[in-house]
Each structure stands twice: as structure tokens, then as C-alpha cells.
């Protein structure tokens, strides 16, 4: 067995590839992207709180939306009453986007930062009040 040099070479190439993003940042002196700041519309500000507390919404809105869609589509339940006793129509376009009508400054900022590409807007309209782009 005299494959030693190949093994070492392979390991070196692997390490180089593995470390390349870190090296890139060291060389170019890149800094982490700043935390995105989401913009609230006047309507959203006036409401003070979303359907659930802000902390919950920030981390769990996707689960909440999934639960909503299951209830609406599969169980025929369309209203959601939160812990404060306030009732909402469970609709991404007609409820969420009614307040957060600024998708670019609200949804997209965070999604882009986290590099997630939800496909909600393939079907659901992002500004039910306004015109489509």
C-alpha cells in the first residue's frame, strides 16, 4: 500500500474546501450581516399586539400558520380566539397581510436574512387591499 501521498493530498483538498468560507471572511474582513429590523405599519403599531405575543410570533409564526391552515382546510374551523379572548379570521392574506401590508419591509427582511424562501406567495396574495404587482 503506497497510497499515502494520495490520502494526504485528498485530506488537504478537503480541509482547504472546508475552511474556505472562514478564510474568505478573514481575508476580506467581512463582518456578520446586521440584524434585520422589521418595519411595522401604522395599523400594526396601533394594534399593539399580534394574534399572539410578539416573542411567540417571532419564533413560532410558521407553526401557527401551519396550524391555522390545517384547521381551516381540514377541519373547516376558520376563527381563532387567542388567550386574550380576541377572535381572528385565520387567513394569511386577509388577516396577517391586512395589518402587515408591507411584505418587503416586514416578511422579506427577516426571511432574506435567515435565507429562507417560503413559497406562501406563490398562491396567497401579499397585499389583498392593493393591486398586484
Amino acid at each position: 500500500m503506497n497510497d499515502k501521498k494520495w490520502i494526504v493530498l485528498g485530506l488537504l483538498i478537503f480541509m482547504a474546501l472546508f475552511l474556505s468560507p472562514f478564510l474568505y471572511n478573514v481575508v476580506t474582513g467581512a463582518k456578520a450581516a446586521p440584524m434585520p429590523e422589521v418595519v411595522l405599519t401604522e395599523k400594526a403599531k396601533a394594534a399593539k399586539q399580534c394574534v399572539m405575543p410578539t416573542e411567540f410570533m417571532r419564533t413560532e409564526h410558521m407553526q401557527l400558520l401551519d396550524e391555522w391552515r390545517l384547521k381551516v382546510v381540514r377541519s373547516g374551523l376558520r376563527d381563532f380566539t387567542n388567550t386574550e379572548g380576541k377572535t381572528f379570521n385565520m387567513s394569511l392574506s386577509n388577516t396577517c397581510m391586512d395589518c402587515h401590508s408591507n411584505k418587503a419591509d416586514f416578511c422579506d427582511r427577516c426571511h432574506n436574512y435567515a435565507s429562507v424562501k417560503p413559497y406562501c406567495w406563490d398562491c396567497h396574495i401579499d397585499n389583498p387591499q392593493g393591486e398586484t404587482k
Binding site: M52, P53, S75, L77, D79, F80, T83, E84
Partner: peptide
């Protein structure tokens, strides 16, 4: 989030 306090509810409208 619901904890021990008031629960969230789903209804038909």
C-alpha cells in the same frame, strides 16, 4: 404559550 392561563380556541365563526 397557552400555559395554564386561558386557552386558545378554534371555532367555526
Amino acid at each position: 404559550a397557552a400555559g395554564n392561563g386561558p386557552q386558545t380556541q378554534f371555532s367555526q365563526g
